[in-house]
Amino acid sequence: MLNVENLDVWFGHDPDRVAAVTSAAFSVAPGESFGLVGESGSGKSTILRAIAGLIDSWSGRIEVAGKPVAGSRRDRAFYKTVQMVFQDPYASLHPRHSVDAVLSETLRLQGMGDIDRRITRLLDDVGLGRGFRFRYPHQLSGGQRQRVAIARALAAEPRLLLLDEPTSALDVSVQAEILNLLADLRAEHGLTYVMVSHDLAVIGHMCERLAVMQQGRILEIMSADALRRGAGDDPYTRRLIAASAGYSRA
């Protein structure tokens, strides 16, 4: 479904060029859920943005559903295959657009007909119900906003969802609801996920395989089972797992 080879991403121009990602490579099978973990600045979100076409300063090879992409240009078919959910639900909805406006614009852009019925279905799918259709973002809680963002991503009926820390701005009880929703949607629509998080437990819960990143490099790719056992090959991975298990008094 997704194949990334030898990916370099950088920001700025020589001589101030900063490498954000260095020779990253991984592939994700259809229907799989793949995690990218690492601390801030490790380049995990940058990879997602490069795939989505939101960054054009990259080199290497990115293949989505067997088709290579280039730069930041993407065609219509790409947006029907790949969609993204962003980290901060307070920043990912236009403050002046109601839920209805967001979803109907999205559906129209994707060339869908029968917009009324589809909006109702999307809202039902993400567990909001039609009562939310005409609300503005400031009338929604963080969890409800994230549900709208997920509905927007689903509107195009994509096969690959890029999830950029979708729950890190939410309370734990709301996080549980959103993670359950994402798991249900994946089962229902046969979606493939690439999920970025700094929270190992969330990745362990959601993904089958994951890549551990540090300073722009993928240190290792491991299974969620190995993560649970705390069995990383790299000392950094083991440190990260130990640290995220919680605080133990020195």
Binding site: L54, R76, Y79, Q83, E105, L109, Q110
Partner: peptide
């Protein structure tokens, strides 16, 4: 902003 990125991902052109 993320909502501009999101609209871009729906295929919205620069004019829109």
């Amino acid at each position: 902003a993320d909502y501009i990125a999101a609209a871009r991902l729906q295929g919205a052109g620069p004019m829109r």
